[in-house]
Design a protein around this nucleic acid. Sequence first.
DNA 1: CTGTTAGCGCGTTCAA
DNA 2: TTGAACGCGCTAACAG
Lengths: 339, 339
Amino acid sequence: MFLATTIKDIAKMAGVSAATVSRVLANKEGFFGSSTAKKVREAAAKLGYRKNTSATELVTRKSHDLAVIVNATKTNFSNHIIDGIQAAAFPKDLNVIILYAGDFDAERQRRAINTAVNRSVMGILLLSVEVNDDNLDLLKSAQIPFCFLSISETDESLPFITSDDEEVGYLATKYLYQQGHRNIGIAGINYKNAITGELRLHGYKRALKEFKLQENPDWISAGDYSYESGELAMSTYGRNTKLTGIIAGSDMAAIGIMNQARSLGLSVPDDISIVAIDGTELCEIVQPQLTSVSQSFYEMGTLGVDWLLNKDKKVTKTITPIKVIERQSVKRLTGKNSF
Amino acid sequence: MFLATTIKDIAKMAGVSAATVSRVLANKEGFFGSSTAKKVREAAAKLGYRKNTSATELVTRKSHDLAVIVNATKTNFSNHIIDGIQAAAFPKDLNVIILYAGDFDAERQRRAINTAVNRSVMGILLLSVEVNDDNLDLLKSAQIPFCFLSISETDESLPFITSDDEEVGYLATKYLYQQGHRNIGIAGINYKNAITGELRLHGYKRALKEFKLQENPDWISAGDYSYESGELAMSTYGRNTKLTGIIAGSDMAAIGIMNQARSLGLSVPDDISIVAIDGTELCEIVQPQLTSVSQSFYEMGTLGVDWLLNKDKKVTKTITPIKVIERQSVKRLTGKNSF
DNA sequence: CTGTTAGCGCGTTCAA
DNA sequence: TTGAACGCGCTAACAG
């Protein structure tokens, strides 16, 4: 069997004690002389020494690893959040390890949480994953700081960083209204037992009320933010729908809506306008480009790391900015139809 | 400070020795009685015990973790490979931890490799990451099995699993030829100091030769598989290009080409045909849908795990299947122009 | 089937 | 500035 070189090997070669090697390698300034340091470092290099993380973590009881738990949903914005996390973690010398949990798969979720917890990582960031009560308990009992990203929580004690989801729904609706739309639908969002979706729907309804627009249950189409749920919604609305504007739960859902509209012989944005929620690069590569309510994903990531690093964990709710990015999928309506 | 409960605590509560607790919790069948097992499990549950992975790994010198190192390139097929890895790893009770290495960022790459190696994971899978010599040495010296995925290697001793990249280039070209195209370009691939790209280009040239087609240096456009490199290639070709068919290095590059063609007033596929290399879901959500040479990403993932688990590491080169998926971005040419 | 003992590799006292 | 000794939590060998 292969045995990795340990500090003892280095100690022997350098003619010092293991303790000294430990000190040098950990850069405990002031606890060793420069000549011994040199001997130790040379020996370490020659032997190809690599520190055993398990041993270190066992004795220090702390880790330089930051776990990110991602669900496997076919969302494409996770990358942006992860980019933000990496960017913030790198200068702090934190290693980011990413763990996938299945969608709504409690067992995989549990395993992901467990691997993080059992390694006593310094913190856990959960990317748009909804945990059940058992797994939440698991998380809480571990005494490791954690924070939800890109998801809203009702429980005030749970820390999360995300967009103001109510405002997202409101803003998308308001934008369409301002562009002259009066018959506005919302599709592809999950508002059943999922706070994020509920809030967006609520914002949508609030805008409807404020602008005295008709609320039509047929125009609210539940889904899971997927391409397919967009397609399905649009085919349910049908070719002869009275809708002129649709809010899509995600970029992917928006594309599903758009393609299905085209299949039905409808033109975007001439016959039907679409506002996507998210605003990732997908909005820019489809034709026409999608107007979106864009979220600050990258920032969610950096703020997440900041939060974990911050001693003061009193703030549990952090809101990142959103804004409408106008592209090509919304037509401005004028004339008697709309005014 | 918070102290986690250990097997000693359980031992005390259950009135047995720590060794017995260890056996029960590790399910060493046949080494404990059912009554003691029950006592132990109850105590463990009551105390909210969680195994300390560092301690276990320290003594057993092995890990149930499988590290996947991903580069940060904006490729979108990594998810499929990772899905395959997860699927193969789950039933084997392996935890998959994903580490991001920057693009061509040797330092981040080193850190990613180090975190994997220092934890003595059971294996390392590298997803389309090209390592420099130093990092390759690091990898080799660790005595941990590793395998490159979705990338070709020339060094026969390095294990890798990917498509036959030469064949990818050949097949795409041949397909266009069979559809009546005679002026065929290739764009968005990196064939400078990158084996994968070199091979694809080689396959392209081989097909050209075989079918006695003209090879025009202007039709070969280097790039980095990105959307932008597709855009750039197309605008360099220009509106009046003699090309009728273009092979794109990736789905994203294909979309870049398509959108730029449209900007130039060219219609896809009527004026210009495109074959994308990869065949991810992006091909199906754009309009027109992209015909592609599709790779078996999911399978690369499952095979990668199999390879790590396999005792016999003699086979270093594994090829996964490719095939042309016909969609809507290639027009069949007939008439004197082409025949 | 179970307890005792030893030690994985490292960091950290305490003495010197 | 350095070394000896101890222990982190756990598993493995051995004895019973």
